[in-house]
């Protein structure tokens, strides 16, 4: 299976470990990633606010690049998934598409509307499938309690297969990888990333509430499909701890990293050292469990 890989901005900058882990996992399960190296930012809401038409055109350009390759788009970020698929839905309207195509024509581009936008989590569960995924598991998560943190945008993206109020994808994935999913009500809550620069106080408290509840529910790690959630939950966790008045100490893994760990990849290769909240206790607990497959 081949996919047009759209890593987004953050997975190539502060969350480089996500890009690295994703490539490793994709290779392992036989997905060929054709990176859209020249694709621009999805706009992340900011460009949409500044100039909605420009944001639509920029995303149409990205979609047209995948269409030229005859491939569907793969994202690894909730926000990229939301804004690319929102654009894709808007571009289904023939009038809108014609209008945007007139802009794209200046670059010699055209978008026909025939591309799907999929997040890596969805690809793993639907296209690769639990059975093939399980076949690659060399170091099962050993019943380690892992809680999901979905992030709003993946759940709210048009065409999301999940029930946004009661999603199950990450829990199912954790089970496939041999772990024990921990559920708690704030797994669908907002991390606050999009107000991190403007209202850091609010963002930190928002993430703190989620982290606190997950920890209270017994989670030893969080798994998130979004690098933006990861940034808040990991890099700002010390501030969240301060906000709730107790050390949270909850390692946060990218979904790709979690899958990579269960595949038996070296934690260092998965970029786990780049995290601010140490993943070491989790990895150690994992290494203590028996390796069932060579």
């Amino acid at each position: 299976m081949r996919l047009a890989y759209f890593p987004g901005c953050v997975a190539l900058d502060s969350c480089r470990e996500l890009d690295i882990a994703t490539r490793l996992v994709a290779e392992e399960v036989g997905i060929e990633l054709v990176e859209l190296e020249d694709a621009g930012c999805c706009g992340a809401g900011n460009l949409q606010e500044y100039n909605p038409e420009a944001a639509l055109a920029l995303n149409a350009r990205t979609l047209s690049m995948a269409e030229d390759l005859g491939l569907d788009v793969l994202t690894v970020c909730g926000t990229c998934q939301l804004y690319l698929s929102r654009a894709n839905v808007a571009l289904r309207d023939p009038e809108t598409r014609e209008r945007v195509n007139r802009l794209l024509a200046r670059l010699g581009r055209r978008y026909g509307g025939g591309v799907r936008v999929k997040h890596f989590l969805q690809v793993l569960l639907e296209d690769v499938g639990p059975r093939r995924l399980a076949a690659h598991v060399r170091r099962p998560l050993g019943n380690l309690p892992v809680a999901a943190f979905y992030g709003c945008h993946l759940l709210r993206a048009p065409g999301a297969a999940e029930d946004a109020e009661d999603p199950r994808a990450i829990e199912r994935l954790v089970e496939v990888l041999g772990g024990t999913p921990v559920t708690y009500s704030r797994r669908t809550a907002c991390c606050g990333f999009h107000v991190l620069t403007v209202r850091q106080d609010v963002a930190v408290k928002m993430s703190a509430l989620g982290l606190q509840e997950a920890r209270g529910a017994g989670a030893q790690a969080l798994a998130t499909p979004c690098p933006l959630c990861h940034l808040v939950l990991d890099a700002y966790q010390h501030k969240a701890s301060r906000a709730v008045g107790e050390p949270l100490n909850l390692p946060v893994l990218h979904v790709s990293q979690l899958v990579g760990l269960s595949f038996g990849f070296d934690p260092a290769r998965l970029g786990l050292r780049r995290h601010l909240v140490s993943v070491k206790p989790f990895v150690r607990a994992l290494e203590d469990t028996e390796v069932v497959k060579a």
Binding site: E53, A54, L56, A57, R61, L103, R106, L107
Partner: peptide, 13 residues
């Protein structure tokens, strides 16, 4: 290319 696209969208708006 991206800059040209953004400019074009701005003009159109």
């Amino acid at each position: 290319e991206i800059r040209a696209l953004l400019d074009a969208a701005e003009e159109g708006a």
